[in-house]
């Protein structure tokens, strides 16, 4: 408590009565309206507690007379956004993929929706930028296992690859090594020959030994020059893109045990409008054909 309130002779102002090592403080009072503002904030806070969720309790919290929740607010905003998009979604549903790609406005809408859907559903495997990784195809390049046209991308999205869907894209490369169709040296020679298709082999003798084995076992699907076959999902072997690595060991492992990557079927998980938007988006990444 202030005890030594006195009047300062210089200013004629009273002191607060506090003293610190001989230093005393003049009492220069705040304007009264200032404290009214403080009271106003207290009254405001009482109203706030009544109106909005405020006090936590063991089983939850007070809900407030407005019944406001931040989650409910988001749900409302999403519903409003859906309603606002309704017209465009209907148009996407009606239009063919080619028509969407031709109409700049529809395409812009599809790209925006596709981008979000891609980040939510595809990015875990293919990466946020669609660059993929080992075993997960890069969607930006011009190399497609099952085709890079709008229709083909759309079909892959719908039915998946080796997925549990009646129309899924299905192809099973034999496990040449594991199942004893080729012995260790033969697997090695075939791998060396496969590397020679893109000019990367280092062992001419192995290439020579591998050639008849390749013709016998691989040509039906991968083609004479390793050009691949999109009908069968057989990758090109004569280019610079390797899904599981282009070094000798990786290629030999592919021959030995096969890879058989899987992509889920998205039909049934995502609605058709979203699938169309995704097809348009993936097609736009740079490799669409």
């Amino acid at each position: 408590m202030p005890t030594k309130i006195e009047k300062d002779s210089v200013t004629g102002t009273q002191t607060t009565g506090h003293e610190w090592d001989g230093i005393k403080e003049l009492n220069t009072p705040l304007p009264t309206w200032w404290i009214y503002v403080f009271y106003a904030t207290i009254i405001w806070s009482v109203g706030y507690v009544i109106v909005y969720p405020a006090i936590p309790w063991f089983t939850g919290h007070t809900t407030g007379v407005f019944g406001y929740t931040a989650r409910g607010d988001v749900a409302k905003q999403i519903a409003a956004a859906r309603a606002a998009q309704g017209e465009w979604r209907a148009k996407i549903e009606q239009a063919s993929l080619e028509d969407i790609a031709k109409d700049p406005e529809l395409q812009a809408f599809a790209l925006a929706g596709g981008k979000t859907a891609f980040a939510d559903n595809c990015a875990p495997c293919h990466g946020t930028g669609g660059a993929g990784g080992k075993g997960y195809p890069n969607l930006n390049d011009d190399d497609w296992l099952w085709g890079g046209s709008l229709k083909q991308i759309y079909a892959t999205l719908q039915y998946g690859v080796r997925a549990d869907h009646a129309e899924t894209r299905q192809s099973d490369m034999p496990r040449f090594g594991v199942d004893g169709m080729l012995n260790r040296e033969q697997v090695n020679d075939v791998a060396e020959f496969v590397l020679s298709l893109s000019g990367k082999s280092t062992d001419a003798a192995a290439v020579k030994r591998g050639q008849p084995l390749y013709v016998e076992n691989c040509v039906p699907c991968h083609g004479e020059k390793g050009e691949g076959n999109r009908e069968l999902g057989a990758p090109k072997l004569n280019d610079h893109i390797w899904l599981y690595g282009g070094d000798k060991a990786s290629v030999a492992q592919s021959v030995h045990a096969a890879r058989r990557g899987v992509m889920p079927a998205w039909s049934g998980r995502l609605d058709d409008v979203t699938l169309k938007q995704l097809a348009i988006y993936v097609h736009s990444l740079g490799g669409g054909q």
């Binding site: 705040l30 304007p31 009264t32 309206w33």
Partner: peptide, 24 residues
Amino acid sequence: MTLIETRPTEAPPDEEPPLYANRV
């Protein structure tokens, strides 16, 4: 040395000074 010189003749006020000043 005290920074605020006080007049010994000035009697301290009986009641505490107000902390809030009314607008004149």
